[in-house]
Nucleic acid binder design. Sequence first.
DNA 1: CACACTTACGATATTCGTAAGGATT
DNA 2: AATCCTTACGAATATCGTAAGTGTG
Lengths: 301, 301
Amino acid sequence: MGQMNLSTRQLRAFLALAELRSFTRAANRCHLSQPAFSALVRSLEEALGARLFDRDTRNVELTAEGRLLEEPARRLVADFEGLVADMGDRVARRKGRVSVAALPSLAAGWLPGLFAEFRRTNPGVDLALHDTLSDQCLDLVRAGRADFALAATGPESPEWTTEVLCRDRFHLVCRRDHPLATKAALRVKDLAGYPFVHFSRASSVRQHLEAALHPQQMATVLEVEHLTTVMGMVEEGVGITVVPGLTLFEFERGSLVHRPFNLAGLTRTIYLVRRADRSLSIAARSLYELMIERKPVSRRN
Amino acid sequence: MGQMNLSTRQLRAFLALAELRSFTRAANRCHLSQPAFSALVRSLEEALGARLFDRDTRNVELTAEGRLLEEPARRLVADFEGLVADMGDRVARRKGRVSVAALPSLAAGWLPGLFAEFRRTNPGVDLALHDTLSDQCLDLVRAGRADFALAATGPESPEWTTEVLCRDRFHLVCRRDHPLATKAALRVKDLAGYPFVHFSRASSVRQHLEAALHPQQMATVLEVEHLTTVMGMVEEGVGITVVPGLTLFEFERGSLVHRPFNLAGLTRTIYLVRRADRSLSIAARSLYELMIERKPVSRRN
DNA sequence: CACACTTACGATATTCGTAAGGATT
DNA sequence: AATCCTTACGAATATCGTAAGTGTG
């Protein structure tokens, strides 16, 4: 008794008949032969245990119970259709939400153009971006607050599914009048002698750099958070710095020079990281795939 | 595309799987074999065009789209079940409403006991009673404000379906000390000489009486609306009166006498009248049938 | 290898459309 | 006679359960 099966077709048939008051016309609207339609209405009446229409050969009218059913049925069908339409919108990416957690270096340079392209293609999909360091990016994904992350660490764990997005070479940035700006063969150990403007200790750039320079140490004069701050400091000659290729857009000014390192250790890998136990939402997968398609290219010069 | 068919079984399967996170257990809950259940879930995913569960051999989890569907689906199924349950209540007469339009003479004497019996059997069904004269009874039914009427006229029209409920003989009512109280053969024309307390001109009693007496006229001293008033007047000796047998309960007191007329013309017929173009609601039919079963019996003495 | 979901497949039920039936105007 | 709903019935479709397949711990 409790396991009643009702279909939207039955309710739609009911509503069509209630409106048109004719089996023949209602059957047409439902794209059914008239006898099949008749059977469908009968099946609904039997399922509910109540006659819903008074019909003879000339007239079709709702019974008292039918009239009672009309409004709830209409609402129910509308809800159903709304639900299906909503899902259809998501599948068609006319609707949805993607939340990405990404390193600030990507967030500032590469992501804006990519987000813009995504928005042009999928104007109905909301985008959210958390620009924070790798570990916090992963925390956000783990907590379900971000769909996936762009991070500099590719955690090897059954918890995660990772994919390499690109590799990003480190570049020296200094004033045009700095000795290193013109030095023939640029090597890591050359950095040791000059005042250096660092990113925070947690940043991937700094960790790679210290590892490559070990056991030498750099002459750190400043430790800042923001890319723009670094740029200002270097431009004023406070020190030199090293940044990933993907952030070079910030340093394209006449007074500054940037030069790549060729050492393999001075390369970071950017990973796309997502939870292994969850698939991406349709919208998220769409953005994810666009990222792979539009991989950032680390500058060679 | 717009003609999507979804069934409650699909939604129930979805909800069971979302809750139990196991095809096997959810299939059990739905009383299906596990492969049949699997196919049911797949059919829903195909209908919506979106994968709703991430499943491998070990784990079953909702996808982002599945999580979005969960709450609306739960609500929708609950609404469905509410609707079916409500209809079931009406079919079982645990719920509903009947509105009857009846002549005051029936409303006061016969209906109370009948309504009481109906309420005992169907405590959930609301009852409404309009006690008014025949023509207004029919108006109420025509307007849909009453399900059927108990009237003294059986209109012959395709608009109405009528059924005889009972016949009701008229009785003379007078004081025990009145000459007519003991007169051997009681005839209609005997009424002409005595002061008479009448019902309103629209009442069925009066119409029958005047027709039977024609061309003689009665010595009307008063014209009142309510049965109780008539009783008081007659008891005080203001006049005599004639009432239908079904109202005699009001005149059962030591000081009064009532005597039936044997003339066929001094009989009224009580009809059950309902709209021909509408069936009765389940609750209304139930009361209607109870009325036929418990037909009032017009007193013979 | 045990467990859990999927695929394969034959049997059963349901649903369909065409055609005939019945009632009403 | 025309119209409209119902019934009848064979055909197409869907759904079921059993059994075999597949992947994972």
